[in-house]
Design a protein around this nucleic acid. Sequence first.
DNA 1: GAGTGGTCTAGACCACCTT
DNA 2: AGGTGGTCTAGACCACTCT
Lengths: 241, 241
Amino acid sequence: MKRTREETLRHLEIADYLIRKICEGHYTVNQKIPSENDLCSQFNVNRNTVRQAVGRLTNLGWITPVHGKGCFVNQIPDPIVYVLSSKTRFSENMKKQGLEHSSQLIHWDKGRPDKEEQRNLGLNETDLVYRLEILRSIDQKPISITTTVMPEQDVPLFERHLNQFQSLYQILIEHYQLQPIRSKSFFQASLPSLKDAEILELPENVPILTIESVMNHPSGLPLEYSIARVRGDMHKCLVEF
Amino acid sequence: MKRTREETLRHLEIADYLIRKICEGHYTVNQKIPSENDLCSQFNVNRNTVRQAVGRLTNLGWITPVHGKGCFVNQIPDPIVYVLSSKTRFSENMKKQGLEHSSQLIHWDKGRPDKEEQRNLGLNETDLVYRLEILRSIDQKPISITTTVMPEQDVPLFERHLNQFQSLYQILIEHYQLQPIRSKSFFQASLPSLKDAEILELPENVPILTIESVMNHPSGLPLEYSIARVRGDMHKCLVEF
DNA sequence: GAGTGGTCTAGACCACCTT
DNA sequence: AGGTGGTCTAGACCACTCT
């Protein structure tokens, strides 16, 4: 980019205009902004230029385009705060804030750990692990996908408890008397994979916060390795020291 | 998006091809990938389609396009790890990893705190604060911008020490005998502002990790409020519990 | 069928860099 | 001057949604 002269670019001008309109409340949450064609005539520009502007708003999290319907304004100020500490887990976090939440198991399997999983869980390649893909939602809206890996030896016959999955935490406590303790977490900003974007109902360039954590058994042995992908524009993760 | 049928989209096909080529080492770090025109003829598609593909690689952090020159392959596997704990600061982190780093003061001012600053530093609107904008680099490449706010009363005449700025930490220790302790941090994934993108020499859709922290005086009073924007594709932030 | 966003084509002009 | 990426125009066809 790098505009040396300050002649405003057409698509940025339109984007700024739309953002201003949203901030000033002309277009409110869950309402539609004008269609691309309307914006074309309003600004006397080509549709591609409008799409560039709209794309910017999309990536910034202001709107979500829906095929065949229009672009809907998101709820983006006041992101939901998620507290990460050695003991907190998703359900408790949400309960505390009085938010309606749900966890859904979208996939699971049992197999050999890959190298990263071996390293983080202290296993070798002949061991077995359970892998869970959990989708979490607030108010019916998907907010994160978490891949959780646990050694089979620590949670034998885990599949027996997956029928009416509600909360991982609950299964671990009820059936295994296990309460994993968070040992470390890596934070990284990234973009979703196409698959994750689809599941999270997210446009492909909306940034996500990737949190890669290792949880231990109270004894200190690693018990759970998880990679969470949280949509970035609507969430904040708080760590207290 | 949502491709129900699995007829691959042209631009995704090209993007996948390029990523594969980079992974396989056909295009190596700091080398150029073929120009947009070359890719047009190679794939028999319009330049806009190629640009869509190249744009994807750009956002994912694989390449950085440079106006008039070409698209250069980034160093993206093995992101640099930044350890966040109650005491660590930038310089120490980098020293430990043996990386050549530098901090550069790009702006400072003294003024009234805004509401957010008042809240985080326990000030009221008539107080004064120093604001510093610090650009940090590794191997001459910019990696983060941090806005640091400190109450004037805690660091009186701070401007006197800004002439040959090297390290904030050093100034606080040497001239004020202060060693702030990290109290809490918020992590969020977002996109850079246009200004930040320019300073960080970052394409506008590359995600950044925003870390908003409050540091305390050993006594417990807030001493420093900072907002760091770190380029997301090349860094990981580690928190140990 | 009409309206919407998603993909793609075929051009144009510009600013920037290299030679 | 020629190559490169950045912006923009003017169309086309498609898939999806609403009615």
